[in-house]
Design a protein around this nucleic acid. Sequence first.
DNA 1: GCAAATCGGAACGATTTGGTCCGATTAGCT
DNA 2: AGCTAATCGGACCAAATCGTTCCGATTTGC
Lengths: 135, 135
Amino acid sequence: MRLTSLADYAVVVMAAAARRPAGASLSAGLLAEETGVPLPTAQKVMGRLASAGLLVSARGAGGGFRLARAAGGISLADIIEAVEGPIAMTNCIEGSIHDCALEGSCRVKPHLNAANDAVRGALQGVSLATLAEAK
Amino acid sequence: MRLTSLADYAVVVMAAAARRPAGASLSAGLLAEETGVPLPTAQKVMGRLASAGLLVSARGAGGGFRLARAAGGISLADIIEAVEGPIAMTNCIEGSIHDCALEGSCRVKPHLNAANDAVRGALQGVSLATLAEAK
DNA sequence: GCAAATCGGAACGATTTGGTCCGATTAGCT
DNA sequence: AGCTAATCGGACCAAATCGTTCCGATTTGC
């Protein structure tokens, strides 16, 4: 139940981006310097955020990133899923993966499913706009 | 945001133990056979559950494990913490660890703290008695 | 006193993760 | 129009964690 360092960095970077004027072009170098995240790591993180559709990227000189949606429309769950993959406490909750030998006779799966929804709901309730607030 | 396989197995084993009459002596071999969890893995998991205080163990022939408390007094969060360690989404939330270079100037930490409490609350709200129900 | 059964901890291999680097692409300037 | 500089995108490699297995310590029952 711990999120990876990359996801942690992703939250920090996204919050920094949300504090900037909307529509401005943010380079990975700029946000890395502002947040203190090492540049190569920031590049990797922002790349994943872009391919997940949370950031839109522009290549070449003068390029960079910008938020794909308003900060209020991006949730903490979105950011975590962009970097870590689907939020599923167990493999058997993800629809496509069935590598659990106990599946079929497992008695606890439905309960875990409910718990997973509760956790996911808690993370979906936190918007990027909130994360960017001064506190 | 995915729990490890060991924690997953721990939930399955604990639910199986809770379905048995309270006070009975359950050996690792018995629960392994009943749940389908490989025996060596079940041993390791139950060892951790015992040292965390969720199970009490008795050594020697005729020994085994039994629940330390009633099933209603054990939460899903307890089981996960016994196997995985404290539920803390980021290192900086755990009090004793301070290996984040951003700490001190980090703007998002208080918000993550609130999110962490929400997740933890969702897991504490699920009791082992519920998990042991037929569905 | 002996033997069987069970827990406890240590060691190994595999998978995932985190970090770094170099190539592809595009705008802006000369 | 060509060139240069800046920036993203993907591939590669080291490190840590996780999962599994095995063997030794301990205790009851005969």
